[in-house]
Computed example of a mutant assay.
Amino acid sequence: MRELHVKCLLPVRLDKYLMEQFPALGVGRLNKALRENKIKLNGKKQPLSTRVQNGDIVRLFLNDDVLEKRALPAAMLVYEDDDILVVNKPAGVEVDGPADDTLLKRVCATLAGRGGPSQAMLCHRLDAGTSGLILLARNAAAEQFLTEAIRQRQIQKRYLCVTFGRPQPPAALLHDYLSKDAERGVVRILSAPAPGAKEILTGYETLAVSGRLALLQVDLITGRTHQIRAHLAHIGCPILGDSKYGNNAANRELHFKYQALCAWELRFPAQIEDARFSRLAGRVFHAEKPWYCRQLLDGTLR
């Protein structure tokens, strides 16, 4: 329980006051705490629109981990310098958005906790259910450099995934077209050009097989929405755990909540002309291989 003795010159709304004291709370958590009778103003439950004033006492019956900003565990920070961050995102965490807990908010909380600038900008994204490496910029110059390098495909992205089904041939470069269905929040893979469809290239190589499953290394050459997930499903080998494009019966049987897809490697170009970022030339960053890779290799996962 936290007890706050209000000290302010002018009355202020209760929700605004609490979010100033505990930025990690957010409106959603505040409303939930109020519904659960965990916020008391002068001993009584009051609407969040109530104005508090000097001398009021607010009691919060919430755990510290709810009140404090969530920072990055050390293992999630793969690389850091004055310009960029490489962070290993766990599956199930949104990269950004209105949620109280996102990767971007964790990064900013970590930087703020050191007492220095807390600014960080996302340079690309991963689906919430996909784990792996994310690049963030710490200033405008780095943001421009990273986003342009990604746009021009100078930074190579390599993934690991487990598919339900063994692809044939075991290695290939898939070349098709992707069309978005914005209303349903899905994409379709087409074998020929069509209005609104964008060209996609996805390379894969089978690293191991186990029963009905295969462990693949995937090179994302073009980076479209849901590209890897939809492209592999299109050839009859959906990613295990993918509820949108996959085999839900297999997902339930094998107890996969999130897709077995990890952005495992980021590879910078061998030469970088901009002297400010030349130290990154040839650098290769890896995420820790997910648990399901080990289980497929030892035959536990079949």
Rank of each mutant, 00 (worst) to 15 (best):
L77R: 11
K45A: 11
L190E: 04
L296N: 04
L85F: 06
D298K: 13
Q154I: 07
A141V: 13
L62Y: 00
N139M: 03
G26M: 05
R229I: 08
E3L: 03
A249Q: 15
A74H: 14
S131I: 09
P117D: 12
H175R: 15
S191F: 01
R184S: 09
A249L: 14
H175M: 13
A74L: 14
A99K: 07
G165Y: 08
I235K: 08
Q119G: 01
K38C: 13
P269F: 03
A194V: 04
I235P: 03
I272L: 06
Y177V: 12
E143S: 12
R138P: 02
L173H: 06
D219M: 08
C108M: 15
T102Q: 06
D64A: 13
V209I: 09
L48D: 03
V6L: 02
H226W: 00
E36Q: 14
G236W: 09
A24G: 09
P290R: 00
I150W: 05
A137D: 08
Y17H: 12
I221D: 12
R138H: 00
G282A: 06
D274F: 04
P269R: 08
S243L: 12
L296M: 07
P290M: 00
T130D: 09
A270G: 12
A260W: 07
A112W: 01
E205R: 15
G282P: 01
L62K: 05
G97P: 01
L160K: 11
V95H: 10
Q217K: 13
Q21G: 13
K32C: 06
I239Y: 03
L122C: 02
T110H: 01
G223E: 00
G129S: 14
K180F: 01
L207H: 02
T110G: 01
L136M: 12
V52W: 00
A149I: 10
N251D: 15
R70N: 15
G92K: 02
T110K: 02
F285S: 07
G26R: 06
G26D: 04
P23Q: 12
D83K: 05
P98A: 09
G129N: 13
L296W: 08
T130H: 06
K180V: 05
R302S: 13
N42G: 02
G43N: 04
T202Y: 10
R212A: 07
L296K: 03
I189M: 14
L126I: 08
E94S: 14
I150H: 05
R13E: 04
L174I: 15
A194R: 10
Y79W: 08
L10A: 15
G196P: 11
K198R: 15
L266A: 09
Q295R: 15
Q168R: 11
I189A: 05
L41Q: 00
K89E: 11
D101F: 09
L18Q: 01
I39R: 07
G236R: 10
Q217G: 14
R166E: 04
L72D: 11
D83L: 01
G165H: 02
L174P: 04
L14C: 10
R138N: 04
A214I: 04
P238Q: 07
N88D: 15
A112T: 03
S243Q: 13
N139S: 04
D101N: 13
R125E: 08
D64H: 11
A230I: 10
A142N: 04
L77F: 03
L34E: 09
L266Q: 08
